[in-house]
Computed example of a mutant assay.
Amino acid sequence: MSLRPFSRSLVRPGRRAVLGGLAGIGVLAGGGILLRDRFDQAEKEQHAQPDGVFRKLKLACPHPSHDPVLAMALRDGFLDRYNLDITVLDGADTGRQALDQLRTGAADVAIAPALSWLPQLLGGLEAKLICGLQSGSSRLLVDRRSRFKRIEDLYRHAIALPDAAGGPDAGADRLFFSIVMRRKGMNPNKDVTWISVAPERFGEVLASGQVQAVGGHDPVIWEAQQSLHLAELASSMTGSYSARVVRVLGARDDLLARDPRAAVSLVLAFQEAARVVASHLAETASVMADQIPDMPQDSILKMLQAEKHDVHPVGQELREQIAQYVDELKLIGLVDENQDSGSISKRFCATILRG
């Protein structure tokens, strides 16, 4: 399926994600493994046992030290528990770059925003999404003294992002804010100007009037907000977006074909780490502080507390949320509105843990 340019026509609003609990225990069916994992916080979770096979895998992830679930999984032995030896690759600053490492075979699995995954999957990336890790942390910020109070106020103004590429190469932050703008009746490709600016220059370009807003995702945008005393105009942490998964774990098709149980171990390990992050923010902040030495631990903790960490869907819940993203890409012309979002989502998600 090819990507097409922005269309002026509005399409129907995105579907509501069905956010339900997952129930059951692991079962074997046919030649594959179909696991159902109950995430009832009132009871102790019962997981399928790993098969005991030791696996070495390579993982691509943009700025891995910034990912709380990955940081906890590596630090507290969740991967070891499932006999996984994960090498985290260097060299990816964006989700698109991490997925390039997956495409070339340099990586077996990757973590990237859903809005980075979908254009690549639509463009032929041979991989499947297997597990959601956490919800979003994108923020669009303005000077507190400015007249900008709503995202619509940015009409005919400029926005700075660390990665402001457009079209099918657009970064996840730009795509997210473009979707928000489109829902407000704006054309994000014509009604605002996007400028790539390094985060350390955000204060300079705001003060000079070169841009009127800056955007990005935590922890970089959190640090900008705190140090420059900026006001939040829009974010992925409010309203219905707060219940949406953003960072997603995916695996190459060839890995899933030759070793399907590897995906089971990966999902169980990362789901366990995600739940620990959600219930132990102070411990997570301590782990991340060791990896982000320029950011004080108390600031990391406040950042984590401002985010939402109990969103890590699998199975049907993940498919529903990915289908909703496909609907939203229709709004900005990156998916043909006649395509069936549910079918696309089913094609791109592997049912490792079935809800």
Rank of each mutant, 00 (worst) to 15 (best):
M1F: 12
R8S: 08
R15Y: 09
R16V: 06
R16W: 05
L19A: 07
G26E: 06
G32M: 03
L34Y: 07
R36Y: 15
D37C: 07
D37T: 09
D37Q: 09
Q41C: 11
E45L: 10
Q46N: 14
Q49M: 11
Q49R: 14
G52P: 06
F54K: 07
F54G: 00
L57T: 01
A60V: 09
C61E: 02
H63Y: 09
P64M: 11
S65I: 09
H66L: 00
D76Q: 15
G77I: 04
G77D: 03
R81I: 08
D85E: 14
L89P: 13
L89V: 13
D90E: 12
D93E: 11
Q97Y: 08
A98S: 13
L99H: 00
D100R: 13
Q101D: 14
A112P: 03
A114S: 07
S116G: 01
L121I: 06
G123W: 06
G124S: 05
A127P: 01
C131Q: 04
R139V: 01
L140N: 09
I151T: 05
H157M: 13
D169S: 15
L175M: 06
I179N: 04
M186S: 11
N187Q: 14
N189H: 13
K190P: 10
T193G: 07
V197I: 10
E200L: 13
V205Y: 01
A207E: 06
G209Q: 00
Q212Y: 02
G215R: 00
H217V: 08
V220W: 03
I221W: 01
Q225K: 12
H229D: 15
A234I: 02
G239P: 10
S240D: 15
S242I: 02
G250L: 04
D254I: 06
L266Y: 06
E272V: 07
V276K: 12
A282W: 02
T284S: 09
S286M: 08
S286L: 06
M288V: 03
A289N: 07
P293V: 07
D294N: 15
M295Y: 13
V314Q: 07
L318I: 06
V326H: 12
K330R: 10
I332Q: 01
G333I: 05
I344H: 05
S345K: 05
C349V: 12
